[in-house]
Design a protein around this nucleic acid. Structure first.
Length: 986
DNA sequence: ACGAGGTTAATTTTT
DNA sequence: TTAACCTCGT
């Protein structure tokens, strides 16, 4: 069965699409164009999927059709010759923006699903990657390869087709953010890709020049954003309707009869150029001008023709053996416009098209196959001649470039009037010469024989012959397309541990004995030095890996440290060196001593115990507050002593503890408190434990509490085996019992302690460092990195405006999330290296601040994630992290946004809570020093926190940052939108 | 048992 | 402001 298929369309849920793009209008448009199979588009969007489920019904194997009553209504006023069946296939276009091999890649891919169940599985998996509701064409921070993997996991019959593969901004081979080959993009899964969409700006002969594409079926689709554009490119199939047959046709070309195409010159990105200046360049001219706009000197947008030449390994005119046939056409409304001398969208042109459709049949039939006589009868001589010339390739096109469509001219001046006056048309009339720029051309001067092969019937002839328009720009055949896999990290597992260390790091690594105190500011290579110390001493034979203990605070930090230890410490094996957290270590010790498993209560269970034991007359909140007090007390050396002056709390403590022991359970605080009590009580046990470790390392020592410090003292008596590392400026956990005094008084506590300072920061730029210094006061650091942009302090009118401002800036940092923005960005001037979504973070003081920010990012289609929320998340996806400043500790990002730097929020001053100004200051310091490249600090004039309005003044901490270090700017107030809230007069 | 309506309390986080 | 929690009435 012959089917003309348009396999890439969108719904009204995609950005910049027609409001009325629904199934009824798709159905109608398909019939008017002559399409038997149309893609649904956008099936990942919940709104559109609901319409699919509601308005479509299953037809043959994996295909769908509009429900009968809807179909009847939709086609009621169609030309009778156009009525028929339309099938739909589940399809979606995914915009992947991600960093791979140090470059931001932007690819669009089409994914096809064989059933609704498969689509739902796919949607569920992708829902963990990004926000599918924000756009029918979702933007995900997911590599194309991983997208393909997820598609195949959803259903093995699913398939992926790279979309408009040559366009500069968003395609697999694009000049701006693409790859040089499919293997590089899809890696080990490349063999699952068997078709590629060539896009409007290229046609098959251009693609034939790249032999790496020979194995792919080249398909053509409309990428329609409105019903009117449906079917402007399409595929001719001879298959039994069904998903399986469709897939087979694209995979094996069995039943794939070829494509219907735009003339590629009509496409938006055919040539190179700079739209702002009206400069259009062919590849030779681009080369000659060094890729610069001849008018303004900005970089030109490199179009499809140039890109094809870059990757071509064949001269033009070569037709691969199994290439599919194609036909080049011009949309009928454009021909009608030409015939009438009016615009393609005008009422007159529309009426003429309609007349032709009623008399002859669907548009593709009129354009491609209908007898010219019939066209003349229905549409007049000018339209008939226009159709004839298009079929013969006798037309003139000003080629498109830099987002500008090409312009088709069929008739020369006066010709149209002449034709209109004729009743019959004699051949041989040639259009008058046009005077357009050098990249324009006539097809009319082609010999009739060659012109006829415009409509290539795959009879083994030279189908590329007529496309000599770019043959004339062909450079000597370049070498074959280099397709390389990214090099694997093949560094030797354990090279010299001191390699590449600076003076301070080396000192820390080699200092022979403890006690050793290391002051390590942000980005000074703390972890690296820690690992180097272990590796060096193990290699020197001073300790065995089994004798090394490294303690971090969080599981995450411990995990990271473990991985690096495994890579760098000679003889490392799981468990040796022992890399763990305080709690992990304590748990191990408890298990060892008690010889039994230990039951650890979670927060809810703790509350229950407290409630039954000591909760009389307490509300939930009171209970929580009490537990908090007990928890803080348990982090001290002697909890009972700490509570001695609060008899009723002490009583609660005793009853709570009694409850725990009756249950044979412990709480998290006990994981430190119990081992400590044990070691305090038994010098013998203490000695046995400490003798096991010849080297003890403690990370983030500025955050230890009393119990932890005491435990450390047991593990490393007199500090002989002890090295601690930390940064007093980053002590931010006082509220939960941390005592930075242990770091400050380390040297008094352990006599003869040596101190090493890591002074060079490899993370911070001079600008960020300067701003950080203004906040923290005394940090002695040198920035090793080249300078970056200044730290910016941005005032915003409201919290919502602040969120929008951040979204806009992130959009800019990734180099634009759509082609319009991308080209605008290029035009805006210097093009900084784009960053990936995973390299940006928004830091806030309170979790509640995350809401408007996540909303604004979501609205902008930016993949983002609230850190600290248990939400389903695919680790393969790259997302902007939105998190509290606390959660950001120990992490780094290229770009950091610090939101809500205002009086009341920074320092945080909530009613009923004591303000710890010094700790808040350090918190801002921590936030600022997460930035590798740039930091943007924002504050809002209007913000409510927990129903209370803040004063709206910038944080007093910011005053210390000089203007030269951090320029103050103001966010542009958003344009008031119609439909927004009106000011009431009353 | 459930729903309407009133009241209250609201950081930062790890094990 | 908001959401969870409580109380009271049916």
């Amino acid at each position: 069965m012959l089917l003309t298929a348009d396999l890439h369309v969108h719904s009204r849920f995609s950005r910049a699409t027609a409001r009325d793009l629904c199934f009824a209008s798709l159905h109608r448009a398909a019939l008017m164009k002559g399409l038997g199979l149309v893609a649904t588009g956008d099936f990942t969007h919940p709104g559109w999927l609901a319409e699919i489920e509601e308005q479509l019904e299953p037809a043959e194997d994996g295909l769908f059709r509009l429900k009968a009553d809807l179909a009847r209504a939709a086609s009621a006023d169609l030309p009778p010759v156009c009525r028929g069946d339309v099938r739909f296939v589940l399809e979606v276009e995914i915009s992947s923006i991600y960093k791979q091999a140090d470059r931001v890649r932007k690819n669009h891919n089409l994914v096809y699903m064989p059933s609704l169940d498969a689509a739902r599985r796919f949607n569920e998996a992708l829902g963990r990657v990004g926000n599918l509701a924000s756009d029918g064409r979702p933007i995900l921070g997911l590599a194309s390869r991983d997208l393909l993997e997820i598609a195949l996991e959803a259903d093995a019959r699913a398939f992926l087709v790279p979309a408009h593969i040559w366009t500069p901004w968003f395609s697999v081979l694009g000049s701006k953010s693409g790859f040089d080959g499919l293997d590089e993009c899809f890696g080990d899964l490349a063999h699952h890709v068997f078709a590629a969409e060539t896009g409007l700006s290229s046609d098959p002969p251009m693609n034939w020049r790249v032999s790496a594409l020979d194995r792919l079926t080249l398909i053509s689709n409309s990428d329609a954003h409105s019903a009117a554009k449906l079917g402007r490119e399409a595929n001719l199939l001879d298959i039994e309707p069904g998903f399986g047959a469709l897939r087979r046709a694209l995979e094996t070309r069995e039943g794939f009869l070829g494509t219907v195409e735009f003339f590629p010159e009509e496409g938006k990105y055919h040539l190179d150029g700079h739209r702002k200046c009206g400069a259009r360049l062919n590849p030779d001219e681009t080369r000659a001008s060094g890729g610069k706009c001849p008018v303004c000197g900005a970089a030109v947008t490199v179009g499809v023709m140039s890109r094809v030449e870059d990757l071509a390994d064949r001269p033009s005119g070569v037709r691969p053996e199994n290439a599919s046939p194609f036909t080049s056409l011009v949309p009928l409304d454009e021909l009608a416009g030409e015939a009438l001398g009016v615009g393609a969208g005008s009422k007159k042109a529309r009426d003429l098209v309609e007349k032709a459709l009623f008399a002859i049949g669907p548009e593709l039939h009129v354009l491609k196959d209908a007898p010219i006589e019939d066209v003349r009868t229905a549409g007049g001589p000018a339209l008939a001649e226009a159709v004839r010339r298009v079929r013969a390739g006798e037309l003139h096109i000003e080629a498109g470039y830099d987002g500008e469509f090409g312009v088709v001219r069929i008739f020369g001046p006066g010709e149209r009037d002449h034709l209109a006056g004729q009743t019959s048309f004699s051949r041989g009339t040639s259009p008058a010469a046009c005077s357009e720029g050098e990249a324009t051309r006539f097809r009319s001067n082609l010999s009739p024989a060659r012109a006829a092969s415009r409509s290539d019937k795959a009879t083994g002839g030279d189908g590329a012959g007529v496309h000599d328009a770019y043959a004339e720009w062909t450079a000597p055949v370049p070498g074959p397309v280099a397709i390389q896999r990214p090099a694997r990290d093949s560094r030797a597992a354990c090279s010299d541990p001191l390699d590449g260390l600076d003076e301070g790091q080396r000192a820390m690594a080699t200092e022979p004995t403890g006690p050793l105190l290391v002051v390590a500011g942000p980005g000074t290579g703390k972890t690296r030095s820690l690992v180097a110390r272990m590796a060096f001493h193990v290699r020197e034979g001073r300790v065995h890996p089994e004798q090394v203990l490294a303690i971090a605070f969080t599981n995450q930090a411990a995990q990271e440290l473990k991985e690096r230890v495994a890579r760098s410490v000679p003889g490392a094996r799981p468990g040796a060196p022992l890399v763990t957290t305080f709690h992990g270590f304590g748990l191990g010790l408890l298990r060892e001593v008690t010889g039994a498993d230990v039951r650890i209560l979670d927060d809810d269970e703790r509350l229950e115990v407290l409630e039954t034991e000591a909760g009389e007359g307490l509300a939930k909140a009171g209970l929580k507050a009490l537990l908090e007090r007990l928890s803080l007390a348990k982090q001290e050396r002697d909890p009972r002593a700490a509570l001695a002056s609060y008899p009723e709390i002490l009583g609660a403590y005793d009853r709570y503890e009694a409850g725990l022991s009756r249950m044979g359970a412990v709480d998290v605080d006990d994981l430190v408190a119990r081992p400590l009590a044990l070691l305090d009580a038994s010098p013998d046990v203490s000695r046995r434990v400490s003798s096991r470790f010849g080297m003890v390392l403690v990370d983030e020592y500025q955050d230890v509490n009393d119990a932890q410090a005491a435990l450390v003292a047991h593990l490393a008596p007199f500090g002989r085996t002890l090295a601690v590392i930390g940064d007093p400026n980053q002590a931010i956990y006082g509220f939960r019992g941390a005592q930075p005094g242990h770091f400050a008084r380390f040297k008094e506590a352990f006599g003869r302690a040596r101190e090493v300072r890591l002074k060079v920061t490899y993370r911070l730029t001079a600008q960020v460092l300067e701003a950080a210094r203004a906040i923290a006061g005394d940090c002695v650091l040198l920035a090793a990195r080249k300078t970056g942009p200044k730290v910016e302090i941005v005032g915003c009118p409201s919290a919502q405006a602040e969120a929008r401002e951040i979204a806009t800036r992130i959009e800019r940092l990734v180099g634009g999330t759509n082609s319009l923005a991308s080209s605008a960005m290029r035009t805006a001037g210097a093009e900084p290296e784009a960053i990936g979504f995973g390299e940006a973070a928004v830091l806030v003081r309170l979790k509640t601040q995350r809401v408007p920010i996540l909303e604004a990012l979501g609205r902008a289609g930016i993949p983002c994630r609230a850190i600290g929320e248990d939400e389903p998340h695919d680790p393969r996806s790259q997302k902007v992290a939105v998190m509290t400043m606390h959660a950001a500790k120990g992490r780094e990002f290229e770009a950091v946004f610090i939101a809500g730097c205002e009086e009341g929020l920074m320092p945080l001053a909530l009613e009923g809570f004591a303000v710890d100004e010094a700790e808040e200051r350090r918190l801002l310091y921590v936030a600022l020093t997460r930035a590798r490249h740039m930091a943007v600090v924002t504050h809002a004039s209007r913000r409510a926190v927990f129903g209370r309005s803040l004063p709206g003044r910038p944080s007093p901490f910011l005053a210390a940052i000089p203007d030269e270090t951090a320029p103050r700017t103001v966010a542009r107030a958003p344009a008031s939108r119609p439909g927004g809230k009106q000011l009431s007069l009353f």
